[in-house]
């Protein structure tokens, strides 16, 4: 690997020098050595497009900023839902998390290219304990309600790939999202609204 010039100079060191932009800061040896000078010039020429690429600024498209902020605002406003209460503590899930599960599920569908965002609403209805029925075993005092099967609705926006029928894609998303959310949270998904925002065309 350690290539050397006829003058003994280490090629690796010259590569570092050029990549660090120091090809003009020459050592006394390099000032007089034709091998080093030729190599440095050749390396600098080969390296020039890398510096050019560094200078070709790519800004974040405005619509991506919007997409990010839409998700941040939703996350900031997300509600919390107690989905299970046991004697040893309660489990609370943010509807933001339900939304993320929905996104993960939608990504599993092959024709989905990109998720624009999701929003979940969890119905907050706690089913009151029927009057007269015994309290749940080991239930701590003050816990008058037991958690019934709760329902969630999910909205999801996505970019599909060009080709498959969009109604079929939406249906596949609906099925997968409902399955995953139910599996992971125990929430019953009663509605999944799918918005196809954009289409990805392979070039």
């Amino acid at each position: 690997m350690n290539e050397r010039l006829p003058c003994g100079a280490d090629m690796d060191a010259l590569v570092e020098q050029v990549a660090d932009g120091d090809e003009r800061l020459r050592s006394p040896h390099q000032e007089i050595c034709v091998h080093c000078q030729t190599a440095l010039e050749e390396l600098a020429r080969a390296w020039a497009p890398v510096s050019a690429l560094a200078g070709s600024e790519g800004a974040l498209p405005e619509r991506v900023v919007h997409r990010i902020m839409r998700r941040i605002w939703r996350a900031a406003a997300a509600g919390w839902h107690t989905v299970a209460v046991t004697a040893r503590g309660k489990t609370t899930i943010s509807d933001w998390v339900v939304g993320l599960i929905a996104e993960g599920a939608a990504r599993e569908v092959e024709a989905v290219h990109l998720i624009g965002g999701s929003l979940a609403h969890v119905a907050q209805a706690l089913r009151s304990r029927r009057p007269g029925s015994p309290p749940p075993p080991h239930s701590p005092r003050g816990l008058a309600a037991e958690i019934g099967p709760q329902q969630a609705t999910v909205e999801i926006a996505l970019t599909a790939v060009y080709g498959p029928g969009l109604l079929d894609v939406a249906e596949a998303v609906r099925r997968t999202v409902a399955e995953r959310v139910e599996q992971m949270t125990g929430l019953e998904v009663v509605e999944v609204d799918v918005t196809v925002e954009d289409l990805h065309v392979e070039r």
Binding site: G58, A59, L60, P61, V64, V65, M69, I72, A76
Partner: peptide, 23 residues
């Protein structure tokens, strides 16, 4: 502390870098 506007400033300031690296 829950201020999305402050976060948006960060997104605009650093979004280009993150996007370029990703690209």
């Amino acid at each position: 502390s829950g201020n999305p506007d402050a976060f948006e400033t960060l997104v605009r300031r650093h979004g280009g870098k993150v996007y370029r690296v990703a690209l």
